[in-house]
Structures are given as structure tokens and as C-alpha cells.
Design a protein around this nucleic acid. Structure first.
Length: 430
RNA sequence: GGAGAGGUGGCCGAGUGGUCGAAGGCGCAGCACUGGAAAUGCUGUAUAGGGGCAACUCUAUCGAGGGUUCGAAUCCCUCCCUCUCCGCCA
């Protein structure tokens, strides 16, 4: 959420910075509401001060021996009632303005970081670096298979029966496929734990306040699954429960940074993506993800962002999966993010880089929505939140299958996974 | 799901209509004492918003929301949550 004071005092900055996202805004009306709201608040609290004075006077008079129904006391009572009515009227107006203001403020995305490259859309994302050598088909070799072909051939997934259980865009993992998923989750969590992250296993049903705090609500309600009879939703990412883990808290500066690594299933409706990535593990309504999350001091968030991204990259490196890092431009930035590095893994079968992690700093945007602060000396300040996938598990499996595919039909696994899998390759079922 | 008890500041805990944002204690911070520390003493120690250069000041907040009253932590209503017992259950 944006700062109300910024809206009142310097709306030009908001217009300019959201302009970098491609938004055209006129905030004069909203600024007026914000100022009216403040003026009303001033009037109302002055009136309340008078009411408090009257109340105190009545108390003093009665304690001093005045009869409760003497004309003097009665006059004060009458004035008190008048004041009360006036306050009620002002309060109602004030609440209405406040609600309008909040609704609108909640719908604005975060201001992009000054370091975020300007651009209109994904074509303007800036590639920062590459790691590893993308596997290409050898001359004369058969074309490389896509992961879903490999997975079906090896009996690792069953998509058709999953439709029977749920609907399309769900998969069932089987045998070595199920085991590989589990191995990857353990491997990722172990690696992050060894790098200073505290492991978390949060609730995966979350309430509306939690979704609002991290930015999915109110604008993106159609992206999440909702439980009809409760104020509960299936979490679209562990970012949601972790943000709200510390909602309404004031942390000590010495506690920062707090670093969490959480495995959760994630649920997304993927509205508007019909026909895209319909096969395999790339785009599902339910997928597993290990999420990295930092709560940190505002002055340290830029370094934290680099570190968090490096921690996500370390997983790809440990798995020998080539990737590149994109610095998302302002036009491609997510709602809550001030700056985002996407990690794109190389999929040899598809012959393309595909997003496998998105590492964002949300500056104080989520902290303000969730009211998460820390004591900076005498002052209480909003902290910064950062999140990144470390990694999306299904997509990691897809990359491993395509990268490790062998002419004999098997899939070679990277050495790091051997202790978790108990084997170094996946073989066709006998 | 049924029955009962309860939700007060970082924590414990007092407070059943009148200067209560809230006694007391613990914790924490500063100062004094000390060679240093302990002990002791003194002082300070919530959040949000508004006004002011500042000192400071006004308003709100005792689970949440409404109500009664000139005045509510205290009385009434609704909701939420926690605990205990019973039921059910992995």
C-alpha cells in the first residue's frame, strides 16, 4: 500500500513512479479526499476534546456536591449531548472517506525501485547474467524430448487420471516421480537451512486479511481458490502466510534480518491462461514450491535482495541446471514488487529459458499493508520484505528431466540428489 | 458439535461508571553508587493519527464492532479468539 502522507504531500512522485509502470494517473481527486479526511479528523478530535472537558466538569461538580439534576449540571449535559451528535455526524463522514481512500490505495501497485530498468513489457527485461552451458541437441542426434514426454514415458506422472480426481491442470506424480518431488523439497530445504534460513511449514489455508497484507487482495481475487463457507483461501504462495506470520508486530532491530524457508503447495486458478502450457508440469493449479523470505532493515534490503537471489541461484547451481537472470523492467513488475530478478532455467527439450524463480523486494509495500515494523532506536519504522522461489519444485523436475535425458531413454540425476534419491538415474519402468 | 471459564501495556497482574493510557511487580534502557560488577536508589519505558521548528499538545485504542451515559477497561448486545471438561477424530 502507498503512504497516505505521500499522497497528501507529494502525489506528483506517485504519478511519476507509477508512470514508469505504464500507468496514467490523475491523483488530484484522491489527494482531495485525503486532505478532506484529515480536516474532518481535526474537527472531530477538537469536538471530542470539548466533550471530554464537559465530562470532566460534570464529574468535578458532582463530586463537589452539586445535585445531579441542578440546572448547572443539566446545561453541561445538554451541551455534551449536542457535541456527541456532532461528533457522530463527522465520524460517519470520516469513515466513508477513509474507506474510499483505503480501497483506492489498496489497488495501487508498489512504486518501482530507482534501480528497476524502465520498460513497457517483458521484451524490455534486462538480462544480467547467465550460468552454465545450455544443452543443445547434437548434430545427427534425435531431437531432445520435452519433460512431459519423458515423464510419461518413465511413468512419473499421470495427467489423464488426475482430471478424474480434480480437473485439468492437475497432475499425479507416481513412483520415482513422486519420490523425486519429495527429494527435491528436502534437498532445497536442507540447502537453505544450511545457509541460515529457518524452516517453516505454515498453514496453507489463509484468510482474507493475509491475502490483503501481501497484495493478492483486493485486486487479484480471481487468481486464488476460495473456500465457499469460510473466510479462507488456498494459498497461492508461501509468501502469503509468511508475511502474515509477523503481521501487526513490532520487531527488535537485533532480530533482523529474519530469514525463512518454507515449503508449501501453491494453488492458482491461472485464469486467462487457457491453452498455454497445457502439458506437463509447467503450469498447474497445484504445485509445490520452496519459498525464501526475508524481513529486513530498509537500509539493508538491496543487499538482501542480492543475497536472496544468490541463495535461489545456488540451488540451480547445485543441480547443474543452466539458467539466466533477468532484471524485470517496470512494465513487467508484479503488483507488490519494487524490483524483481527472475531466474529462468534452460529447458533443453523446449529449447527455451523458463521462469523457475522470481526474487522480489517489496520495499515497505507489504510491511505497510501488514503493519510490520521494527524499533530503530527510539523510532518505530516499517521494515522491508523480500521473497523469492527457491525453487518451484515442479519446474525444477521438468528441467532435471530435460537436462538429464540420455539416448538410452534414462535420465541422469545430478550428484547432489543421489543421497536423496538413492540412485543416480531414472530408468524406464520394467 | 455440547457445557463452563476467560480475553487489560513486552510479560505477570490490579482495577465493576468520574481527571484511567490505566496501580503494583517483572523485564528493558539511562543515571547515581562501585576499581569493575552484583545489590540498591532515582528516572524513563505502548501504538496510531492530527497540529507545532521544537519543547509540547489534541484525539483514539484495555480482543473486535455496536449500544446506554454528560462520562465506559468497568453496564448491555453481537461477533472473534483462548483455556478446561465432554463428544468426534489423524
Amino acid at each position: 500500500m502507498l503512504d497516505q502522507r505521500l499522497l497528501r504531500d507529494n502525489p506528483e512522485l506517485i504519478v511519476e513512479q507509477l508512470g514508469r509502470r505504464g500507468m496514467t494517473l490523475d491523483l488530484t481527486a484522491l489527494q482531495l479526499i485525503a486532505r478532506q479526511e484529515r480536516d474532518l479528523e481535526q474537527q472531530r478530535s477538537d469536538l471530542q476534546a470539548e466533550g471530554n472537558r464537559i465530562g470532566r466538569q460534570v464529574g468535578e461538580l458532582i463530586r463537589g456536591g452539586a445535585a445531579p439534576h441542578s440546572p448547572e449540571v443539566q446545561a453541561l449535559r445538554d451541551r455534551g449531548n449536542t457535541v456527541k451528535q456532532q461528533v457522530a455526524v463527522l465520524e460517519e463522514e470520516e469513515k466513508a472517506l477513509e474507506a474510499r481512500l483505503r480501497d483506492q490505495l489498496l489497488a495501487f501497485p508498489n512504486l518501482p525501485s530507482p534501480h528497476c530498468p524502465d520498460g513497457a513489457g517483458e521484451a524490455q527485461n534486462v538480462e544480467r547474467r547467465r550460468w552454465g552451458t545450455p544443452r543443445q541437441p547434437l548434430a545427427g542426434e534425435a531431437p531432445l524430448e520435452e519433460h512431459w514426454q519423458i515423464a510419461e514415458r518413465l511413468g512419473l506422472i499421470d495427467s489423464e487420471r488426475s482430471v478424474r480426481i480434480a480437473q485439468s491442470r492437475f497432475v499425479t506424480l507416481l513412483g520415482a516421480g513422486a519420490r523425486l518431488e519429495r527429494a527435491l523439497i528436502s534437498f532445497m530445504l536442507d540447502q537453505h537451512a544450511s545457509r541460515g534460513y529457518r524452516e517453516v511449514l505454515p498453514p496453507i489455508l489463509v484468510n482474507s486479511a493475509s491475502l490483503t497484507a501481501s497484495g493478492q487482495l483486493p485486486k487479484f481475487a480471481e487468481e486464488s481458490f476460495r473456500c465457499a463457507d469460510d473466510d479462507l483461501w488456498l494459498t497461492p504462495t508461501a509468501e502469503v502466510p509468511i508475511t502474515s506470520f509477523h503481521r501487526d508486530e513490532i520487531l527488535a532491530a537485533e532480530q533482523l534480518p529474519l530469514k525463512y524457508a518454507a515449503y508449501t503447495p501453491c494453488f492458482r486458478r491461472e485464469a486467462g491462461s487457457y491453452g498455454r502450457d497445457t502439458r506437463g508440469l509447467i503450469r498447474l493449479h497445484q504445485f509445490n514450491k520452496v519459498e525464501l523470505y526475508w524481513f529486513c532493515h530498509p537500509e539493508e534490503s538491496e543487499a538482501a535482495h542480492a543475497q536472496l537471489t544468490a541463495d535461489a541461484e545456488a540451488v540451480l547451481q547445485a543441480l547443474d541446471l543452466p539458467y539466466r537472470v533477468l532484471d524485470l523492467c517496470t512494465g513487467d513488475l508484479g503488483f507488490s514488487a519494487a524490483r524483481t530478478f527472475d531466474l529462468e532455467v534452460w529447458l533443453p527439450g523446449a529449447g527455451a529459458y523458463r521462469e523457475i524463480s522470481s526474487c522480489s523486494t517489496c520495499s515497505e509495500f507489504q510491511a505497510r499493508r501488514a503493519s510490520i515494523r521494527f524499533k530503530d532506536g527510539k523510532k518505530t519504522r516499517l521494515l522491508h520484505t523480500l521473497n523469492g522461489s527457491g525453487l518451484a519444485v515442479g519446474r525444477t523436475m521438468a528441467a532435471l528431466l530435460e537436462t538429464g535425458q540420455h539416448a538410452d531413454g534414462s535420465v541422469r540425476l545430478p550428484p547432489a540428489l543421489v543421497p536423496y534419491m538413492g540412485c543416480d538415474r531414472l530408468l524406464p519402468e520394467a
